[in-house]
Design a protein around this nucleic acid. Sequence first.
DNA 1: GTTAACGTAATAGCGTGTTAATACATTAAC
DNA 2: GTTAATGTATTAACACGCTATTACGTTAAC
Lengths: 106, 106
Amino acid sequence: MKQRDPQHLEANRAARSSLAEAFLAMRTADECRALLRDLTTPAELEALVDRWRVVKFLDQGMPYREIHVHTGVSVTTIGRVARYLENGNGGYRLALERIKQTPNHD
Amino acid sequence: MKQRDPQHLEANRAARSSLAEAFLAMRTADECRALLRDLTTPAELEALVDRWRVVKFLDQGMPYREIHVHTGVSVTTIGRVARYLENGNGGYRLALERIKQTPNHD
DNA sequence: GTTAACGTAATAGCGTGTTAATACATTAAC
DNA sequence: GTTAATGTATTAACACGCTATTACGTTAAC
């Protein structure tokens, strides 16, 4: 997507941690939403939100085509999200577990 | 980008809060990174990381073209990030303040 | 007054994530 | 055995964020 020399690549690795720390610094859902809406374009945020919705439906064992009806997300994308959920980085699983432990989760 | 009926739009609004709560549930930078890498594609994550890097340089008062040299991000994108920083949702400002209060910030 | 630096804007091209449609192999139901 | 549901794969079309380039108006330096 973009040309980048090794110097920039190295700097970017450190920046990835920095971004994570920015999210960690948020204390409420409102604050987190504000950061998300500054960091992402509306289309991007919609994509992220869609994926997370799909993750929760997948976790419930809902079949792809039913998720599609519920969310409007294409079966193609749902399949990709499912792949991230199974062979990803564990972030989805972790978030799911934590949310379940929360008193009022959906 | 996508066709969506009102029912889906309404459901999506609630889902936006849910995504924020997912991030809130992360406790360490590693956990946060894992969630980010599951939620985003590599290209998207690079875009988010770039924006956040740019924000920090802008906050230091660095001129656009110098930021471009440091980061490889185009002046066009830098200008857009600057607009979000000034007329956005306050998420950038908030994250900047919080990070500055942290002992070892970059 | 000239010059240079700066933010900003306009354009074209490119990469890539999403959708829709179709199809296929597997599995379960009857 | 047939049928239907399911996950998966392929294709074409589209949306959109990013880059590079060029240019413009403003401001500060000299």
